[in-house]
Simulated assay, not measured.
Amino acid sequence: MTEASKYGITLEKLRSRAAKGDLTQREIRAYFEPDERRGEAFAPAFKLTEFVDKQGKRPSARTVTELYFGAEMGVVSGPRARLRPRSRGRGITTTASAARMKVLAEGDSWFRLPNLSWPVSYPDDLVDVLRQTYEIPGVAMWGAEIGHMVTVQKNNYLVPLRSGLYRHFMFSGGGNDVLASVQTHVKRFGAAGTNPSSAESYLKASFDGALATVIGHYRTLAGHVRSVSNPKPTLYVHGYAHARPLPGGPYIGAKLEALGFDANSSLARKIVAAMVDRFNVKLKAFAAAENAAHPTYKVVYVNLRPAFTSAADWNTDEIHPSDAGAAKAAARMGDNIAANVPVA
């Protein structure tokens, strides 16, 4: 039996089975493959393989990637569910999962990276680790931007929150605005001093404007969460950590080098740290202001920076935690959730 006859499927049938969540990992590997021309590091795009009859249609890379995402989520939350950390091999039964406290998580790649160890192996994200303790549905998506999440895709979290099942809501957003904006908001090398202590001087005034936009999106998010009752969920937010620029790095290193910096230098690392620190200051102030103005619900700011104590806590792509880093960061998030569980 040929592979094509064994796995052949129409696009219509593929959509239907992906929506039902009943595709196996083997079938997903047969029907999807990386679209290297359109994908980016940790924001992979996918295309359909020869085993899919496209029925005369030409679905876009975005459409196929979203279809892949839905198919993959069936592996961890559908009828064939195997809720487990990506590479640990420890299954969680449906009964055990149902007994766990439910937590909702919406956000970007810190909360959601591809779960399958194909086509490449990705490190654990925070939700992978936290699923060992909590039942967390798949809502977050790598590459998601905060403005899109709180406007176009707001029902992704509002609908489940309004179901009354979730007292705890984790949100991860703004990383693209903070770390992917180096080329826009950092001055060229030589515009300020060359000592690492000059890092703050390299940040343009435009960076504060970008952060103001991000915090504005967080206020929109907060308004959505406040509108939910029975129960009123606690909102958990975080400000990422001091990412490590690398020579030629796809997110930070190459952009700093284009501005004349040595990506390996202390100055480059301090500039990145200054950007992250400034975001954390704004996010912490946002949480404090929300709590003061709206005492009927709670925003918990989680500082993840102390969790990252060595280079080994970072993945080789510069801005995502390694398995070890994800475990440390997830522990801090989990401690904050546990601290806000009412004592029976």
Rank of each mutant, 00 (worst) to 15 (best):
A263G: 05
A191H: 06
K187L: 11
A241E: 03
A326W: 05
P85F: 10
D262L: 02
L221C: 15
Q132T: 10
G91T: 13
L267K: 01
S201C: 01
D53W: 02
G216R: 15
G74E: 13
R17E: 04
E12W: 01
A273H: 05
S227E: 15
V159G: 03
S77I: 07
G21M: 02
S229H: 14
R131N: 08
V139L: 12
N230L: 06
L161V: 04
G107S: 14
K284G: 14
G260E: 01
L116I: 12
Y157Q: 07
A327F: 04
V139R: 14
A96P: 00
V120Q: 13
G107H: 14
G78M: 05
R100I: 00
P342T: 01
T151D: 15
T316C: 02
S227T: 06
K187R: 11
A292W: 06
S227H: 02
V120F: 14
A212P: 04
R100Q: 01
D313C: 05
G39W: 03
I215S: 14
G223W: 13
V159C: 11
G190N: 00
G253W: 03
D262H: 02
D277A: 03
N155C: 05
V76G: 11
V139K: 10
K154F: 06
G175N: 06
W142I: 07
I319V: 13
I337F: 09
H238P: 06
T296W: 09
A140D: 03
I319T: 08
S87C: 13
A199Q: 09
A4W: 00
S87R: 14
G334Y: 08
V103D: 02
